[in-house]
Computed example of a mutant assay.
Amino acid sequence: MELHEDSHREVGINNSYELTAVQFCFENVNKSCIKTTYSPFPRMILYVVFGFGTLLAVFGNLLVITAILHFRQLHTPTNFLIASLACADFLVGLTVMPFSMVRSVESCWYFGESFCKFHTCFDGSFCYSSVFHLCFISIDRYIAVTDPLIYPTKVTVPISGMCIALSWGCSITYIFSLIYTGANDDGLEDLVIALSCVGGCQAAMNQDWVLVGFLLFLIPTIAMLIIYGKIFLVAKQQARKIESSSNQTQASAESYKDRVAKRERKAAKTLGIAMAVFLVCWLPYFIDTLVDAYMNFITPAYVYEILLWFVYYNSAMNPLIYAFFYPWFRKAIKLIVSGRILRNDSSSMNLFSEDVEIHN
């Protein structure tokens, strides 16, 4: 009899534990989403990892934008494209990553339904804007490497401005129209109703729009791969030609062209690395969303979050790439951090000279 009573007591304790273990995003709200909680240490680690990526995306890209816009020597069509790309990454760090960080760690959306839509639109807009920017940059680099002397007359600042406007205009129009017309979840009404709860922020995408989104990523990506393949082929041929040149007079006459070509090849290589990092970060996410849409959304939540944060971390990577490969960017950072940027003559400093003085 005593054993029987103890068993009942144990069952009662287990049942009460299960009831208290279930937590909701909003305890006193009907149809609240269920909250998945982490123990304190993993929770702290996640906040540190996501927070570090957010700060790097914001301040790293802010340095890129400041350097290019402040120093007149950097006012070139290519650099304006890079500054605009950095602007997209900066906005990801400022308007997307902090809120996604809370959602990922707390498994709840605490910022309201209206901002959820804006957040989704910002996320998608900045993504496609980055793709289009990288595509235009690859075309810019192709012209610069294949014809470095005629490049300044072919690619001008107004043309660069048109590419920037096109990149932003197309991406913003596409994503905002898709989300605010509700076209993204046509045919998924039952699923949306079944999964709807207070404290959630997920945009359902039907198969058609997932495919369109994937193609909008894939087509520019294939174009970039082909263009960079041609760039490196031309760069290899140019390097061989310079090495095999035996005529000293001819070498002397072409020295300026060779120097320009070498500089452009180095810039193309750096931007090619930035594109490769972009692919590594973005491709798994796009493949997963495509497979998920056609396999009835089978991706576990934690796998989706990992892929999503790979995407977000891409926004923090470009400043690190520039800092590693561009001496002028390292010099610009030192000038900005040391405060010399506040001087009247700082905008006219020569960042490409080896004797740029950083200290007083």
Rank of each mutant, 00 (worst) to 15 (best):
H4S: 14
D6G: 03
V11T: 11
G12Y: 09
G12P: 00
S16N: 07
E18D: 08
T20K: 08
V29E: 09
S32E: 05
K35V: 01
R43I: 00
R43G: 01
L46T: 02
F52N: 08
G53D: 12
L56E: 14
G60W: 04
V64Q: 02
H70E: 09
R72E: 15
T78K: 11
N79M: 13
A83I: 07
D89H: 15
V102W: 03
S104R: 05
E106N: 04
K117H: 13
C121E: 15
F122H: 11
S125W: 11
Y128F: 15
I143E: 01
A144F: 00
A144Q: 01
A144V: 02
K154M: 10
S160T: 08
A165V: 09
A165R: 07
L166W: 08
S177F: 11
Y180P: 00
N184F: 01
D186E: 15
S196M: 07
S196G: 06
C201H: 04
A203M: 08
V212C: 08
G213V: 10
F214D: 02
A223D: 09
I226A: 13
Y228L: 09
L233C: 12
V234H: 07
K236S: 13
Q237E: 15
E243V: 08
T249G: 06
T249E: 11
Q250C: 08
Q250T: 11
A253N: 12
A261M: 03
A261V: 02
A276D: 09
L279F: 05
W282C: 12
F286H: 10
F286R: 07
T289H: 00
D292Q: 02
A293T: 02
N296L: 08
P300Y: 02
Y304P: 03
L307N: 04
L307I: 05
L308H: 09
N314K: 05
S315N: 04
S315D: 04
N318L: 14
I333E: 04
V337C: 05
I341L: 13
L342Q: 10
R343A: 11
N344P: 00
S346T: 06
S347Y: 08
S353C: 07
S353D: 12
